[in-house]
Design a protein around this nucleic acid. Structure first.
Lengths: 143, 143
DNA sequence: TCTGGCCTTGACGTCAGGGTCAAGGTCTAC
DNA sequence: GTAGACCTTGACCCTGACGTCAAGGCCAGA
């Protein structure tokens, strides 16, 4: 199969496949006229890459899985190197989730405080004599 | 104060300050010789930017806070536009955390299954006659 | 033969947030 | 008067994962 068909079947683009080849991740055989030629195994490699990409793996991190499949293993994660990547990724994910959660807390707190402060300001401004609401003087968008 | 001093006091670099100025985020006055000139208010603006950056805000997202401070408000988050950014960021964070958590689950499951499969493979390979461990034939790193 | 669709390589653009030089102007201290 | 520290602009470089041309080759159908 040629590059266009593989791209379509894998739900990606020809540009992406050429990019993967430039990284040595998914090399292609060539037909007589120079066209890239792929088979069903290549489709499986590509699907492995895309699944891991969906997990947020970087392309370089998918390499052990691809090599594993290419060396004849039934699954990309049958090899120790792949398991190692899984473990590293789990640790990364945990750290990332932890960091984001901490930030979420802080932003939430900031928002609550700022909302409270605004409510108090408005109350103070409305109470005396129906004074005009304290407005935020943002610079108007330039045309 | 000049750009070098402001950069040092804010714990950033002169390049960064010039970059912010190029975005219109932190414009500078100029002295007679063309040097940028900053005051304590600029330092506060800059600190506001850095705090939000630490929260993972993009520079464009810090703009409402900076404008708010510049328009004379005591805090960068006193203005509705800033609160809106807070809320949007909270939603983004929640979505991101949710997505990462889901992926974490799936990767964890994959790892567990793959480890189990490997253990079974090794057991099967060791049992018969102490056969050589099934090795993953990764291509050796090229020099 | 022509048209249209696929393919090729190569090169440049994108996004954020700057890093790093280069070439030169300015200011202060000695 | 000169060294050295500071400043200026402009320009190119980096990361990741491609998108988007440009210019041309190959092939099938009418």
């Amino acid at each position: 199969m040629r590059i266009g068909e593989l791209a379509e079947r894998a739900g990606t683009t020809t540009r992406t496949l050429r990019y993967y080849e430039s990284l040595g991740l998914l090399p292609a055989r060539r037909t007589g006229n120079g066209y890239r030629s792929y088979d069903e195994d290549d489709l499986r490699l590509l699907q492995q890459i895309r699944v891991l990409q969906d997990f947020g793996f970087e392309l370089e991190e998918t390499r052990p899985f691809v090599e594993c499949l290419r060396s004849g293993h039934p699954a990309g994660d049958s090899c120790p190197a792949s398991l190692e990547v899984y473990r590293r990724k789990l640790a990364e994910l945990d750290e990332c989730i932890g960091r984001l959660s901490a930030i979420r807390e802080r932003v939430g707190t900031q928002l609550a405080q700022a909302e409270l402060a605004r409510a108090q300001l408005e109350a103070a401004a409305t109470a005396p004599e129906g004074a005009p609401e304290p407005r935020c003087e943002l610079t108007p968008p330039r045309p």
